[in-house]
Each structure stands twice: as C-alpha cells, then as structure tokens.
Deep mutational scan, measured.
Amino acid sequence: AEKTGIVNVSSSLNVREGASTSSKVIGSLSGNTKVTIVGEEGAFYKIEYKGSHGYVAKEYIKDIKDE
C-alpha cells in the first residue's frame, strides 16, 4: 500500500540513511518534489530514493495520498 506525498520545505529536505536525525544524510530533495512512501518509522517516512530507500522527517511531507 504505497502512498505519495509532496516535500513541503522552502529550500531542501535531507534524505537520511535511517529513521533518525543522527543518521547519515545520503541526499536531499527540493520543495514540491513528489515522493513515494513505502513505510514509516517513528517520526520518519521511508521513501523510494535513487533506486533504493531513504528516510525523511514526516513533518516536512504534505498531501499524503494513497496510490
């Protein structure tokens, strides 16, 4: 049951290796980017990222929809 969301930041949002603010940053997404959410862990969504997965803070994702 995948969902999509939109990155809701003015600059960019860090994509992390794990569901923690201390996890390594593996990339970033600019505002209004559409993401595919494959799961959630605590305050983070697990998303599809560059052929693999990454984690982003839930508070910066809006317009969550079921695909």
Rank of each mutant, 00 (worst) to 15 (best):
T36S: 10
G39D: 09
A1H: 11
V56T: 02
E41P: 01
K46N: 03
N32E: 11
S10I: 14
S30Q: 14
Y45F: 12
I26C: 04
V25W: 04
Y49S: 01
S52H: 14
Y60E: 06
T4D: 05
V38K: 05
S11E: 12
T36I: 15
K58C: 04
L29G: 00
Y49P: 00
T21E: 13
V7G: 03
E40Q: 10
S22A: 12
S52I: 11
K34E: 08
T4S: 12
I26T: 03
G54F: 03
D66K: 07
Y45K: 01
S28A: 11
R16Q: 14
A1L: 12
L29D: 00
G42T: 04
G27C: 03
G39E: 05
G31C: 06
G54V: 03
N8H: 13
E40N: 05
S10L: 11
I61Q: 01
E48G: 05
K24T: 08
K46C: 05
D63C: 07
L13F: 03
T36K: 15
G51I: 05
R16A: 04
S52V: 12
I26Y: 02
S23I: 01
E48S: 11
S11A: 10
A43W: 08
K34C: 06
N14Q: 12
V9S: 11
G5D: 02
V25I: 11
T36V: 15
V25H: 04
R16K: 07
G39W: 04
S10F: 06
E40P: 02
R16L: 15
A19D: 02
K62S: 15
K50Y: 10
E2T: 12
S30A: 15
I6D: 03
S30N: 12
V9I: 12
V15Y: 02
S20Y: 12
G51K: 08
V9D: 07
N8A: 15
E67A: 13
T36A: 08
L13P: 07
S10D: 15
I64Q: 06
Y60I: 03
A1E: 15
E2N: 14
T33N: 06
E48F: 08
L13A: 11
S12N: 12
K58A: 06
V9K: 09
E59N: 06
A57R: 14
S23K: 04
Y49H: 05
N14L: 11
G27P: 00
S22W: 07
S30G: 13
G42P: 03
K58N: 03
K46Q: 08
K50C: 08
A57Q: 13
I64M: 08
K58D: 01
N32F: 10
G18L: 14
K34P: 08
V35L: 05
I64S: 06
T36N: 09
S22P: 03
A57Y: 15
S20R: 06
Y45E: 01
V25G: 03
G5M: 05
E40F: 06
K46H: 06
G51C: 06
Y45R: 01
I64W: 08
I6N: 05
I6A: 05
E67M: 09
N32H: 12
I26D: 00
H53L: 12
K3D: 03
Y45V: 05
K24Y: 04
V9C: 07
V15G: 00
E59F: 07
G18W: 12
D66Q: 11
L29N: 00
H53Y: 14
T36L: 09
G5S: 04
V38S: 05
K58L: 03
I64T: 09
E59I: 12
F44R: 01
G18Y: 12
E41Q: 09
S20H: 12
E2M: 13
D66E: 13
S10H: 11
A19I: 06
G5K: 04
S22M: 11
N8T: 13
G54A: 11
S12E: 15
K62F: 11
A19R: 03
K62D: 11
K46G: 02
S11Y: 10
A1T: 09
I37A: 01
Y60M: 10
A19F: 04
S52E: 10
H53P: 05
E2G: 13
V7F: 01
V35Q: 01
V35R: 00
